[in-house]
């Protein structure tokens, strides 16, 4: 397109006998366009942080839930144990709020899922998790509660999501607060290490991921790759 435009201009220039000085406009405009793209960021993306871990855990219905089941779905992971007051109640409380406001996102055919992993398999049996899910009013189609044996959990949560959990000498559980957003390709895209992140920010990030996966083909893909290249991350 640019080439056609230039050719037209060239003919015009020949007619009027003008010099070629206007040509410097092209590199300057392209540089300005790049600068404007990275400053005004018309397209925003979330960084690709690292591969999400592979796992196979048991959900509240006693069925296996694996990382493959989440492929093609945008998944928000949280970590908790039901037998706790602070601050894990907040992680599920916040998810309740996100669930209530999910209708604000026009996600089309891109499913959004929540997976809450319990780090206390001894206490959190399927029955306890079912009860917990009901208490929270969790929609069983989008919100899964899973757990598994501690060795596997250590690898998935500690090794994969990079979130520490452990046991104090008195048997009580230590768990870092964390929310992790994983895209449909199984790549971690956002990591909220806050006790109380802003629901608006989580919804915004979910929306960004939905938009990116809806625009993952053709010319739009290049625009999104450009956004990755120029680090057009939301602030």
């Amino acid at each position: 397109m640019t080439a056609v435009f230039a050719a037209g201009k060239r003919q015009e220039a020949k007619k009027t006998g003008a010099k070629w000085h206007w040509l410097w406009v092209i590199p300057v405009i392209s540089l300005l366009a790049v600068a404007a793209f990275s400053i005004f960021r018309p397209i925003q993306v979330l960084p690709r942080i690292t591969l999400a871990p592979g796992y196979s855990l048991t959900d509240q219905n006693g069925e296996a839930l694996t990382s493959e089941d989440m492929r093609g779905k945008i998944t928000l992971y949280t970590f908790t144990y039901t037998n706790c007051t602070e601050p894990c109640v907040q992680t599920t409380g916040l998810l309740q709020e996100v669930q209530a406001r999910l209708n604000e996102i026009d996600n089309g055919d891109v499913p959004i899922q929540f997976v809450t992993i319990s780090v206390d398999p001894e206490h959190d049996t399927t029955a306890v998790l079912t009860e917990f899910a009901n208490q929270l009013g969790a929609d069983p189609n989008i919100w899964h509660f899973v757990t598994g044996d501690v060795t596997r959990l250590k690898w998935v949560i500690g090794g994969g999501f990079g979130l520490y959990f452990g046991q104090r000498d008195d048997g009580s559980i230590i768990l870092d607060s964390g929310y992790t957003l994983v895209d449909g390709a199984g790549i971690i895209r956002a990591d909220y290490r806050l006790y109380n992140p802003d629901v608006d920010i989580i919804l915004r990030d979910l929306r960004l991921l939905v938009e990116e996966s809806q625009n993952s083909e053709g010319a739009a893909r290049y625009a999104y790759e450009a956004a990755h290249l120029f680090l057009c991350y939301p602030r």
Binding site: W24, L31, A226, H228, L229
Partner: peptide, 26 residues
């Protein structure tokens, strides 16, 4: 000016074609 353009293109090519990215704050 040509150098500027060449380097801008190099950034573009390294990003699009080779997928090079820089680390960012967490």
């Amino acid at each position: 000016a040509a150098l500027l353009v060449v380097f801008a293109l190099a950034v573009g090519i390294s990003g699009f074609v080779y997928g090079i990215q820089v680390p960012q704050p967490v």
